[in-house]
Design a binder for these strands. Structure first.
Lengths: 182, 182
DNA sequence: GTCTATAGATAGATAGAC
DNA sequence: GTCTATCTATCTATAGAC
């Protein structure tokens, strides 16, 4: 059984990844899912309902991706975080959620879930490295990753990954009390 | 003499501040400037030309605002930076620039100017506090401020300013080698 | 229940009036 | 040079066909 609703949500995610929030239109999503816009509205009567469903899927995946990075080899965590900050497709989706949250109260609630989930996970990670870890440290790391991602998206520098790695390593060193340094 | 071009740019900034990038349409900007869309296109034939002019103005003002914050009383710098991260109108403009840069190469170039200008200023500020200050430190502070602003916009927490202040103070303490702490 | 034709609103750009 | 009527494309939503 082909779940059309799921297909549409996948299509919505694909559009956000490629074109960002401004490209998120019903005709485009419908075309990507292989149906007409007037058919899409049968499954999602309004644009907001579609956007909400897509946002929920995006949040689930973002948290799952972060879990995967943080449970990997300790040495690879910084590397994994860098990768998340330079995947422009992912950044486009996250920026779309942020903008949508700025406009729609219902999506703002979803975005808070996302932010809280990320901070909670980062806090747990920091605690596993360093006993003295406050919530400010986790929020710092979260905001830093967000900022790095946004700036990298907008500047698109060829050495973006290298730059972000350098900053993230500096931050992790400062946050954990200056451990490993070549 | 009323400079219509300047009026239009001001209107464009106002629209970005209130509605963000998605609200940036020629009819809306024209209405805000008190003229018709078809008249606006006389001064700015295409949407991109209008957006470019508005972006340049936004960048100039952002850098000027940062200069004002960084040249103020040393004790007030953290406070001033917090304010910049919780002014949603300002964040909407910056996010609009980031998205536009992601789509248009010409705007990407402008965004790099902005980012470089900010990092340069923050580097100078850090150097005035702490001799040992690398470019990574300045980029860290920049990305952190960007991330804090985006997250605050999307979550709109009542205690957003307090939260951002706590994180920024933590970061400044770590970056400058743990000085003033109550 | 599934799907489509169509309406109504708004976007961006151009030819041309004054 | 300044300004506007108008065209075309695209968006969201609804009524209704199968």
């Amino acid at each position: 059984m082909q779940d059309r609703r799921q297909d549409i949500i996948e299509a919505g995610l694909a559009i956000l990844r490629e074109h960002g929030y401004i490209g998120f239109t019903q005709p485009r999503v419908a075309a990507h899912a292989g149906l007409r816009q007037s058919h899409l509205t049968y499954y999602f009567p309004t644009r907001l309902e579609l956007l909400t469903a897509v946002a929920r899927a995006a949040i689930d995946r973002q948290l799952a991706a972060l879990d995967k990075v943080l449970t990997g080899a300790a040495k690879e965590v910084g590397n994994g975080m860098t990768k998340m900050t330079v995947q422009h497709a992912n950044t486009r989706v996250m920026m779309a959620l942020a903008q949508a949250a700025d406009q729609e109260l219902s999506l703002q609630k979803l975005f808070r879930e996302l932010a809280d989930g990320i901070v909670s996970r980062l806090g747990g990670y920091l605690k596993s490295l360093d006993a003295e870890s406050t919530e400010e440290h986790a929020r710092l790391l979260h905001a830093l990753a967000v900022g790095l991602a946004v700036v990298d998206l907008a500047t698109a520098r060829p050495d973006g990954a290298k730059r972000n790695t350098a900053v993230l390593e500096t931050a992790l060193r400062l946050l954990t009390g200056l451990p490993d340094k070549p």
